[in-house]
Design a protein around this nucleic acid. Sequence first.
DNA 1: GCCGAAACTTACCAAAAGGTATGTACTTGT
DNA 2: ACAAGTACATACCTTTTGGTAAGTTTCGGC
Lengths: 128, 128
Amino acid sequence: MRKPADDPCRKADVFKAGCPSRAVLAMLAEKWALLLIHRLAAGPARTSELRRQIGGISEKMLIQTLRRLERNGFVARCAYPEVPPRVEYALTPLGASLSGPITQLDHWVEQNLRDIAAAQREFDGRSA
Amino acid sequence: MRKPADDPCRKADVFKAGCPSRAVLAMLAEKWALLLIHRLAAGPARTSELRRQIGGISEKMLIQTLRRLERNGFVARCAYPEVPPRVEYALTPLGASLSGPITQLDHWVEQNLRDIAAAQREFDGRSA
DNA sequence: GCCGAAACTTACCAAAAGGTATGTACTTGT
DNA sequence: ACAAGTACATACCTTTTGGTAAGTTTCGGC
């Protein structure tokens, strides 16, 4: 009997200025967020692994981005009280469900790189 | 006979620091790029329409983002030499093929907003 | 002859993002 | 005793981003 509109957070709409989805999009737009999620989709990893595998990321940005992904429920941090301290990061179920769209996007970019480059050259040619 | 690796632009890899795909990702990470592509996926539109429909965008950012999308071959600009000047923007075939992954991402965000909010509350509760 | 609309362009500025460098706590190796 | 590794935290500083506001051009309407 409850109408589909009976909760306050209903009409999520990225096109509306104040919509909370904007904040989520902004977070995903951070320089390393998509990359981290993409990598973690392949399985959990520890800090040093991630640093080596995500080319160019700094230690600070790695931690900072992980923290933010954690705060938003995409990533879980798991610290093992071992003797060289070991910390592993993994996608939560929520993060895992996001990794689909994201890796698709990444793959699209990788696969269409030459078309993009061609379009750029064509554009630059026209405006020359 | 040509091996799959015989062109220079082959091994596109978002995880490599210098890869051109990083630049593309960076462009898509601009504040309004995804939103514009998402909107244009629904059909061509003129400047003033876009300004009204993309909540919160300024004139400057609208034009700037459109230009950048144009330079990268995602959007085509079409000016009609009419008497109140009319300019329409539309996705190119390249842009249209990207709109799939992007609108998927947007929809994921919209649909998972409450889960994200819940995860945030849980996180903030734990660290309190 | 001024107003307004469309589509920009330009100048200026504040905030935020992101980079480098260094410090810290704990423990193992030599 | 001291270097080294892990997983951070912190300070500092530069660059980039994005916002406001105003100017420009071309035209038709009043």
